[in-house]
């Protein structure tokens, strides 16, 4: 079974809880464990918070971000793909951005752990960004005990994530 979902929301702090809960609700079609679900919620929260806090900080207006999910599998498990895309300022130095504890907002009590958490909690991660155009985070997570044969896309994403480490 393939199931998809697309969500477009304003980049507002108020939407952080909604975004992670919506993805978690969608993921239920793959019957995830509590711990898988909580990893997914955390990773989504990090990606969405990045877009809300960083992407539109210069323009001062609240633009939109989109979350797309694709579930492949059934109630015994499968694979969940998630992309979070914004049309914001983009990331000038992606290599630095991916380093643990690196943050551009030092005085703001930011931990700088967002991307590290996404990489650790998900099975695949990739980052595309262009200054002035926006940022796209792609992640996937295998769910359940059923062995999942990764598609070629997944392998490419995983390799890019490994190369970025």
């Amino acid at each position: 079974m393939v199931n998809t979902m697309k969500l477009e929301i304003m980049a507002l702090g108020e939407n952080e809880a909604f975004a992670r809960s919506a993805v978690a609700a969608f993921a239920l079609c793959l019957n995830p464990s509590f711990s898988e679900l909580s990893d997914i919620k955390t990773a989504v929260s990090e990606a969405v918070t990045n877009s809300i806090v960083h992407a539109y900080k210069h323009s001062g207006q609240h633009d939109t971000l989109s979350i797309e999910c694709r579930a492949e599998g059934d109630e015994h498990g499968g694979i969940l793909h998630i992309t979070v895309t914004d049309g914001g300022c983009g990331i000038a130095d992606m290599e630095k951005a991916l380093l643990p504890f690196y943050t551009t907002l030092e005085n703001d009590e930011r931990s700088g752990m967002g991307f590290t958490i996404m990489q650790t909690f998900m099975d695949g991660f990739s980052l595309e960004s262009e200054v002035g155009k926006g940022t796209k985070v792609s992640m996937f997570r295998k769910i359940g005990k059923k062995s999942v044969v990764a598609t070629m896309d997944d392998v490419a994403v995983k390799e890019r994530a490994d190369a970025g480490r």
Partner: peptide, 13 residues
Amino acid sequence: SFMDSTGIGFLIG
């Protein structure tokens, strides 16, 4: 019931 990396910053602060 839920915590992301904000919690790390919060506790360290």
